[in-house]
């Protein structure tokens, strides 16, 4: 009886260890799987051409990803530019000013914002933001736009990353000892002065990490962007132009990809690029965190 129990414990331990190691390595499996599938195209085309050529003609065997990479960068840039001020101000308000009751009421709402599926954001963008840009914002600038544009994608994405920045920032602010605020307040500083000079300074690495996290979220977001960005494979020259982000490219062409030579390889290379960029952001955010923290401490 006793030995049987111990044996069971030991076996389970081994099994769980294997499972744990396996699950920890999934990210490498994904990278490896995508790399294997993108090797055919990497074998015959130089990587620089694939990444920096603007010519995308799968039937002629030309697979320049540059317009799509730029499309993603534009959309991500606009989204983060909109999201930063709103979400930082909100996070500061909720953690430093708002009454407990307000905090308790808004927290689940912001969680809900994070939980809404991206297609729902997409359908909302199509129904509300796209017409808004077409009928009101573009005429304001004296230009024409179908509404399906960098700006539309940027606005929708910004709303999607609000919860990311707010959540991380509030956590970081909460980790700062109350006594540090008191030290500044006791000198007669106003709350805002305390936040600006002391709390935000202490929280800076966390805020940067929050923004980098939002960047990587926006970078890989697919469905909502696909539905409102317009998807024209050209370099956008203004926020009212359409863009064709990388994830949208992958989704839109899954149908044909097995019938044109190298097409699937090109699209899986695009996924690999997406994965590597997101991994880079994640790891970057950790390094920034450690560095800035060390400097402040």
């Amino acid at each position: 009886m006793q030995t049987k129990r111990l044996l069971k414990d030991k076996l389970a331990s081994k099994f769980m260890l294997i499972l744990t190691v396996f699950s920890g390595l999934v990210v490498f499996f994904i990278a490896f799987g995508l790399y294997q599938r993108s090797r055919p195209i990497l074998a015959i085309k130089p990587l620089t051409e694939l990444l920096f050529s603007t010519s995308w003609h799968p039937l002629r065997g030309e697979f320049g990803l540059f317009p799509f990479i730029m499309g993603t960068l534009w959309v991500t840039g606009v989204a983060v530019a909109i999201a930063i001020p709103f979400s930082l101000l909100t996070a500061i308000y909720l953690s430093e000013y708002a009454h407990k009751i307000i905090r308790e009421w808004t927290a689940p709402l912001i969680d809900l914002l994070a939980g809404i599926p991206s297609v729902i954001y997409g359908i909302w963008g199509v129904l509300v933001i796209v017409p808004l840009i077409k009928d009101h914002i573009a005429p304001l600038w004296g230009t024409f736009s179908t509404g399906y544009s960098v700006l539309a994608a940027g606005i929708v994405l910004a709303i999607m990353v609000f919860p990311v920045i707010i959540h991380v920032t509030i956590e970081v602010f909460r980790s700062i000892p109350h006594e540090l605020r008191d030290a500044s307040l006791a000198l007669g500083a106003t709350r805002w002065q305390t936040i600006k000079h002391v709390v935000a300074r202490k929280a800076l690495p966390g805020i940067i990490a929050a923004i980098v996290l939002a960047l990587s979220r926006a970078f890989g977001e697919t469905m909502a962007v696909l539905m409102v960005a317009g998807n024209v494979a050209k370099l956008p020259s203004s926020v009212l132009d359409p863009a064709y982000p990388l994830p949208a490219l992958i989704v839109n062409n899954y149908g044909e990809m097995l019938s044109v030579p190298l097409y699937d390889s090109a699209l899986l290379l695009a996924s690999l690029v997406l994965l590597l960029v997101v991994l880079f952001f994640n790891i970057l955010s950790r390094i920034i965190l450690i560095r800035v923290e060390r400097r402040i401490q």
Binding site: G24, V27, L34, G220, L268, L275, V278, L279
Partner: peptide, 28 residues
């Protein structure tokens, strides 16, 4: 170290876009 690495890895996986999982699922 295993714990640190696994948690870190899950955090990273959390940030991987769903389209990449789609593409990976497709390769499988």
């Amino acid at each position: 170290r295993l714990v640190f690495f696994t948690r870190f890895s899950f955090d990273v996986l959390w940030g991987v876009p769903s389209i990449v999982y789609g593409a990976f699922g497709f390769t499988i």
